[in-house]
């Protein structure tokens, strides 16, 4: 499968540093051959803590290769903003989904799965499955 048809991943956090670092971590764990488009959308437009609808829309557009976009979020306004943008209809690429998953583990699962050429439903399922991994 060509890179053009891979699912894109957007990581939304209240913190730009967290979003960027988790993107880096997930890409790193997916392996050096991974060409999945992963875009962080962290913090407010002014660089502070918060959620920016503009950054989320831009990130989603930047990773859209036509195979869908999986959006993972941390909490609160990040979740609500993505849901509100999805309800809007035209703010995010077609086939954009908010994936219900833990942020770090879900991001790793999503990027690794997307790098195999899996479709959006499979990427979503892999990310959501990260909830079932118990640490104790």
């Amino acid at each position: 499968m060509s890179d053009d048809t891979r699912v894109g991943i957007v990581l939304v956090s209240h913190s730009a540093t967290v979003a960027e670092s988790v993107a880096e971590l997930a890409k790193g764990l997916a392996g050096s051959g991974s060409t999945v488009a992963v875009a962080p959308a962290g913090g407010s437009e002014s660089g502070g803590l918060g959620t920016s609808a503009e950054l989320i829309s831009a990130a989603a557009a930047s990773v859209d290769r036509g195979a869908g976009v999986a959006v993972l979020t941390d909490l609160g306004s990040a979740v609500l903003t993505v849901k509100a943008l999805l309800a809007e209809g035209d703010e995010l690429p077609e086939d954009t989904r908010l994936v219900d998953a833990p942020f770090v583990e879900g991001a790793v699962a999503a990027v690794v799965t997307a790098s195999t050429g899996a479709d959006l439903a499979a990427v979503e399922a892999a990310a959501a499955e990260a909830y079932t991994y118990r640490k104790v």
Partner: peptide
């Protein structure tokens, strides 16, 4: 509503926007 979602930057943006 659309403007509130895109400019507020906290949970009140999507909530009031909606």
């Amino acid at each position: 509503g659309r403007l509130l979602i895109s400019t507020v930057g906290g949970a009140s943006g999507p909530l009031y926007g909606t």
